[in-house]
């Protein structure tokens, strides 16, 4: 993930970006992680369903060790939201199924 997302075409650092969570658009501050966006800007704290226990999970450690902030980003599943920065146009979905569907 490059830093280019917070530089707009005019070469200036962007203040906000538009991302889609579960297909709904949100304008949020640039330069934050997807997990922070979930906790602070999407009216939810639930990111994924645990594949072994079926429990709903949400971001827990915020530093990449707990694997509970998993989301699907731009069609790629199992991304740790706390390690990925938001980018303009990003499509974020909850990780609720095993790879390949139910």
């Amino acid at each position: 993930m490059s830093q280019n997302n917070i530089i707009n075409k005019a070469g200036q650092a962007r203040e906000t970006v538009t991302v889609y969570f579960e297909n709904k658009a949100h304008e949020i501050p640039a330069g934050i992680s997807v997990a922070a966006a979930v906790l602070g800007h999407f009216d939810t704290i639930h990111t994924c369903v645990n594949v072994s226990t079926g429990e709903k999970r949400g971001p827990h450690c915020l530093m990449g060790v707990c694997f509970d902030c998993m989301v699907e980003i731009n069609g790629i599943p199992n991304q740790q939201g706390c390690l990925v920065m938001v980018e303009d146009g990003m499509q974020i979905k909850r990780q609720e199924a095993l790879f390949g569907g139910q």
Partner: peptide, 24 residues
């Protein structure tokens, strides 16, 4: 402890420092 909404003091500190987001 696995419920969404359960975090650590450290993770709340990290969250706020890095993004300005505060826990609900």
């Amino acid at each position: 402890w696995t419920l969404p909404g359960v975090m650590t003091a450290g993770s709340a500190d990290l969250l706020h420092k890095s993004s300005g987001v505060l826990p609900h």
